[in-house]
């Protein structure tokens, strides 16, 4: 395998006597979309901040495109684009000015700036708003400004911390579609955190679940879902219901519970495929026609809950620098 785009090695971050990240290791291949999931306070932002050179790790390290985050910070900065969790676009400046300032900060040659900015604004569909001050734009549009801003120096690796939190479903889809489109035309590796499991499921090549500062699961969405004990829900509608039908259903293999009304039943199963097969056979033997059958498979939500549990993560911590009254935390 080629040099990983991101290679995290036993990275640790302590704030005082509180350990936010407790020795995480993983690597991301070039071109991958890598999702980082975890409950609030799991340490996702802290991890991203270390990888993007914003804070120094307490122990361990990470290589970004082969550069050490602690020792070669400036080389790292040149190859990464970053969208922080907070909205950080400059509200007073126009869309284009926001990008221009960053192009200058990244030392993008003058000759390339205009075309680059034009192309980026086109791909995030903000060309017609280029002269508007960012404060007049909606949350979704601001996020797109930031995405374009983060790409203005053509980075190889793109870090996005909850880019879709707080956006409506349409804007959310738009952001992801744009990201995919941009990724298709560039050689880009993406590390993204989100609280939306459906997004992560559809878009990420691999997913890491972080909880309490440790990595609790890491695999492709499909395999993650397969890895947890099945909890499928079958919705079956029968042509007619013979005497004692519900009890029959309940006795089928792997069935956990049955609820039903009239001739439509919801069946909870530990193993969807096995139960489905049994229903088909039983129905055929009883001369009952199945009008419809739907199997809802395990979702990433189930995976998430399986690995992180249901407990709320409320705990008191000392005030952190990031928690100022003006911070737009989302």
């Amino acid at each position: 395998m080629a040099t990983p785009a991101i290679d995290v090695r036993e990275i640790v971050k302590r704030f005082g006597d509180f350990t936010a990240v407790k020795g995480i290791s993983f690597s991301v291949a070039p071109g991958e979309i890598f999702g980082l999931l975890g409950p609030n306070g799991a340490g996702k932002s802290t991890l991203i901040r270390m990888l993007t050179t914003l804070i120094q790790p307490t122990a361990g390290t990470a290589l970004i495109n082969g550069f050490d985050i602690a020792k070669q910070s400036n080389d790292v900065r040149r190859v990464i684009g970053v969208i922080p969790q907070a909205m950080t676009s400059d509200l007073e400046l126009s869309v284009e000015e926001n990008l221009l300032i960053y192009a200058k900060l990244y030392g993008v040659p003058r000759a390339k700036r205009q075309t680059l900015i034009h192309d980026l604004l086109e791909s995030v569909e903000l060309l017609q708003w280029r002269d508007k001050q960012v404060k007049h734009l909606s949350g979704g549009m601001r996020r797109r400004v930031e995405i374009a801003r983060g790409l203005v120096h053509e980075p190889r690796i793109f870090f996005l911390d909850e880019p879709t939190t707080g956006l409506d479903p349409v804007s959310r889809t738009a952001v992801w579609e744009m990201l995919q489109r941009i990724k298709a035309t560039r050689d880009l590796t993406v590390l993204i955190t989100t609280h939306y499991m459906d997004e992560a499921d559809k878009l990420c090549d691999r997913i890491a679940i972080v909880d309490h500062g440790t990595l609790v699961a890491l695999d492709s969405p499909l395999r993650l879902k397969a890895s947890i004990p099945g909890r499928n829900v079958l919705e079956v509608s029968f042509s007619h219901v013979p005497e004692g039908w519900e009890a029959t259903l309940r006795s089928l293999p792997q069935v956990e519970g049955v609820t039903g009304s009239d001739h439509v039943f919801r069946i909870n199963s530990h193993n969807g495929p096995v139960t489905t097969l049994a229903i088909l056979e039983t129905a055929a033997r009883a001369g009952v026609t199945i009008q419809s059958l739907a199997v809802q498979s395990t979702t990433l939500d189930d995976v998430f809950v399986h690995y992180t549990g249901r407990a709320l993560r409320d705990a008191l911590q000392g005030p952190s620098a990031a928690d100022s009254p003006f911070m737009i935390r989302r």
């Binding site: 050179t53 990464i80 970053v82 922080p84 909205m87 950080t88 960053y102 801003r149 911070m327 737009i328």
Partner: peptide, 9 residues
Amino acid sequence: RGLHEGYLV
């Protein structure tokens, strides 16, 4: 507001 965070990366 995190604007400096943007500069720092």
